[in-house]
Design a binder for these strands. Structure first.
Length: 318
DNA sequence: ACCTGTCAAGTCTGG
DNA sequence: CCAGACTTGACAGGT
């Protein structure tokens, strides 16, 4: 089985290469005239897309196949004030360049909306904003020319004091989404509301692939063994032709177990790999650490030092 | 060059 | 009912 390592959004291997540059509304308002404001936003988005392409090129050089785009590629585009901005058209060349590179090098990319995108909110305004945000993510991926293999990772959302109802509401609100959004969504277990076992059941019901977050599972669970969950998690990916995705991070310390550490605890990663090894399924290991791709490189070295067979910096064969 | 308060967006807890 | 925590990255203004 193959284990491919990937990382999220920002690189520390390149200088001045933020793909998430933004501008606050307050500062944008200092620019007079709608057209000038849109011009500024467009310039920032172009810079973000150029830097994203630089990151992908560096990844290609290092043979890192797995990467998550930042959600901040196009600043403020879902703000009510800029609802009519046709960013995909204005940025079509830049978006397509990114998508073409991804396809040319057979990379697997994804997106993960921020924590205020809550498909299960009982508040219609929050739901509406969440749908608009999902639409934005979908628009961008479509403009890149990436098909529904390029997934959008979501959490279930809040508990709202009624966890069962909150789960049900996710289901019904999910089912009402347009197909082009629905077909991209994968759901991840979180560390305060919904366990891996609950998300697994949800994913089976709505026929969406499940992203397994190992650290979240360690923080929030009801004693389920990973080895019991794993085959069923893999089954949710069966029709996609994609390797199941696992999120990997380590707690900063005992006081802040939910806070992401700078690097990945290789022993925890190895324990997990040993548990899933008998099932012999390829996975994508998405590293969520403060030190971003530097954490990937360190984990890679640590795995190599523990005797795992390496095929390039970011691929291991078990 | 470095430090600090602020930022569009939500939820949850504790007072 | 409201303030603060949670948590994340980056801007922008100040030194």
């Amino acid at each position: 089985m193959k284990v491919r390592l990937g990382f999220v959004a920002m690189t520390l291997r390149l200088e001045n290469c933020s793909p998430s540059k933004t501008i606050t509304l307050k500062n944008l308002e200092k620019i007079s005239g709608y057209e000038h404001r849109i011009g500024r936003l467009t310039a920032i988005a172009k810079e973000n897309l150029e830097n994203t392409l630089r990151i992908l090129r560096a990844n290609q050089y290092d043979r890192i196949q797995v990467y998550r785009f930042t959600s901040k590629l196009i600043p403020l585009c879902t703000h009510p004030q800029f609802r009519t901005w046709n960013y995909c058209e204005v940025l079509s060349r830049e978006l397509k360049a990114v998508g073409d590179f991804v396809k040319e090098h057979k990379m697997r990319v994804s997106m993960h909306p921020d924590h205020f995108t809550l498909l299960n909110s009982p508040n219609p305004d929050v739901l509406q904003a969440s749908i608009l945000d999902l639409e934005y993510h979908t628009n961008v991926l479509e403009a890149m020319g990436l098909d529904t293999d390029t997934k959008i990772v979501l959490h279930v959302g809040g508990k709202y004091n009624q966890r069962v109802e909150a789960l049900e509401r996710f289901k019904s609100q999910f089912l009402h989404l347009p197909e082009r959004i629905k077909s991209r969504i994968t759901v991840e277990n979180d560390d305060r509301s919904f366990t891996a076992a609950e998300v697994l059941k949800l994913c089976k019901d709505i026929k969406a692939p499940m992203v397994f977050d190992l650290h979240h599972h360690q923080v929030l669970h009801q004693g389920e063994d990973v080895s019991d969950l794993w085959p069923e998690i893999c089954a949710t990916w069966e029709n996609t032709g994609l390797p199941p995705k696992v999120h990997l991070s380590s707690p900063r310390d005992d006081q802040n177990p939910r806070y992401h550490a700078d690097f990945i605890d290789a022993d925890a990663a190895v324990d997990f790999l040993n548990i899933i090894r008998p099932f012999d399924k390829d996975i994508d290991f998405m590293i969520e650490a403060k030190q971003k791709d530097m954490a990937l490189i360190r984990l890679s070295q640590d795995l190599k030092a523990r005797g795992f067979t390496m095929n390039g910096l970011a691929e291991f064969i078990l």
